[in-house]
Design a protein around this nucleic acid. Structure first.
Lengths: 142, 142
DNA sequence: AGAAACCTTGTACCCGCTATAGGGTCAATC
DNA sequence: GATTGACCCTATAGCGGGTACAAGGTTTCT
């Protein structure tokens, strides 16, 4: 199949396939006489694998290592485990940061009562005070 | 004060200050005869405001809009609220995605028993099967 | 034969910085 | 007064993970 069909079946853009090839995530495929890339089912499987890892938010470098590892059947499975664990740790750290962020924004939004003008906006006041290192909102009368 | 002091007091890199100026987040400051930027306390406050919004993960374009709004005291506060609410929605969506990601990775990692070789690695098997659209892990012997 | 749909390479763009190169300026010290 | 070192300037390129062009070649359909 040609690149367009491969891309369509994997649900990615054509450019993305070429980008993955450049980055070594997909092997350079054979070409027709006129230079068109031709792929087989195996290439589709590999692309799907890459995409699935991407939906798990793994960086491309990590996916590349995973692909390398999977080709060496003798390597202890621990190496794979370590890679996934490290990724999981990063995801959990990001999750915690995002949760704190969510609560900050939610409480910020609660500052805004309808009908007010920007001049009296609680959100802006809060943001400005927070930016000045004031722990608690305390209107200084301005 | 010069750019180095401003940056130090706001806890950012000097390049970041210049980057914000180019992006219109900070006003172009006055210059000394030799071309050095000179800032006042007001500039520091504004930079702190920007940084605080950044710790809330707001994109620079949004911070710029917020700064614009805050200069127009007549604008209804709702506009600010809408902006923050939209951001909160995005953060919550990201949070949900990350939570699902976390559980996927955690269950993935549970596939790996120690002492195995990559040839029998549960993680890789799972990733490959998942990539092929198989809902449940089912080792085909291979 | 001509149009539409595909393919090719190469390049530039997005975000929010960060880093580097290649200079100029300023204050202190020898 | 010359040098050192810390600071400042502009311009440019890089990161990751793509996306979007431009400018052309090929294939397929009518």
């Amino acid at each position: 199949m040609k690149i367009g069909e491969l891309a369509r079946r994997a649900g990615v853009e054509v450019q993305t396939v070429r980008y993955y090839e450049r980055g070594g995530l997909l092997e350079a495929p054979s070409r027709t006489a006129s230079g068109y890339r031709t792929y087989g089912e195996h290439d589709l499987e590999r692309l799907n694998f890459v995409r699935h890892c991407r939906t798990l938010d793994m960086p491309l470098a990590e996916i590349r290592r995973l692909l390398d590892l999977s080709r060496q059947a003798q390597v202890p499975c621990e190496d794979v485990d370590r890679l996934v664990s490290a990724h999981l740790d990063r995801v959990r750290a990001k999750l915690a940061a995002l949760q704190s962020l969510e609560s900050q924004l939610a409480s910020l939004r609660a500052q805004c009562a309808s009908g007010k003008r920007v001049a009296d906006c609680g959100i802006l006041a809060e943001l400005i005070h927070a930016a000045q290192g004031v722990a608690c909102v305390r209107h200084t009368g301005s």
